[in-house]
Design a protein around this nucleic acid. Structure first.
Length: 216
DNA sequence: AAACGCTCCAACCGCATGTTC
DNA sequence: CGAACATGCGGTTGGAGCGTT
């Protein structure tokens, strides 16, 4: 793909010098064009590696150190709602990256909660629900998930979303019936096709997560 | 002190999606 | 429209560091 494995690019831990080169480059040129960095700077790292290093470690927005109780609690709640959608979860935990959240979950939180690795991380229904929540941003299934869609799966999906929507409505209506009633109805009742209303879905998710965080 | 086992996290890999030409 | 390339995501792995024997 990008020459990895043919000796053109280095692998493994980054050195301070490599960090400095990458940081300097991003400061001057900004993020993006990751594949150009090796050519421009002489850094022997592939674009993916550069991006990952910046996003997970070098970026000033990345918070280091141990997770607080509040962060743990937030991650647990979000994971219950979203499943293994680490980027979505990380987006709601200020200063934490998807990799950090994923590692923290796998090494600490899943143990604390007594959740076995690879299986039963979330209930089947919430897992599938989360797939739909992320349907407009990413559709990949984990290796352990059953495919949601069969060729004739729309009815099944709609039924399931309605089932889950009742749960969410129940869950959220206790927070702020007025606000949630509005955004809930805008989303869930806006369209008979669950996949054609993703913007509303994500808006609804955003609002529900905002309230989640607010009520912590 | 050395060997071993375990934990944890940085980084890699494969794949999906988005973008450009 | 489709191929090539770029980016992003989630699962997995490698190895440094630490504790135990």
């Amino acid at each position: 793909m990008q020459g990895a494995g043919n000796g053109e690019y280095r692998k493994g831990l980054w050195t301070e010098e490599e960090d400095r080169i990458l940081t300097d480059h991003v400061k001057v040129h900004g993020k993006g064009k990751w594949n150009q960095i090796a050519k421009v700077t002489g850094l022997k790292r592939c674009g993916k590696s550069c991006r990952l290093r910046w996003m997970n470690y070098l970026s000033p927005s990345v918070k280091r150190g141990v997770f607080s109780e509040e962060e743990d609690d937030l991650i647990i709640r979000l994971h219950k709602l979203l499943g293994n959608r680490w980027s979505l979860i990380a987006g709601r935990v200020p200063g934490r990256t998807d990799n950090q959240v994923k590692n923290h979950w796998n090494t600490h939180l899943s143990k604390r909660l007594g959740i076995k690795q690879k299986k039963c991380k979330v209930s089947a229904s919430s897992s599938k629900f989360s797939e739909k929540l992320g349907a407009n941003s990413r559709t990949k299934l984990s290796s352990n998930d059953e495919p949601i869609l069969s060729h004739n799966g729309e009815a099944e999906i709609h039924t399931e979303i309605q089932d889950n929507s009742e749960k969410v409505k129940e869950m959220t209506s206790s927070q702020d019936p007025v606000l949630f009633g509005d955004c809930y109805d805008n989303f869930w009742l806006s369209n008979s096709d669950p996949f054609s209303c993703s913007p509303n879905l994500m808006e609804f998710l955003d609002q529900s997560l905002d309230l989640f965080c607010y009520n912590l």
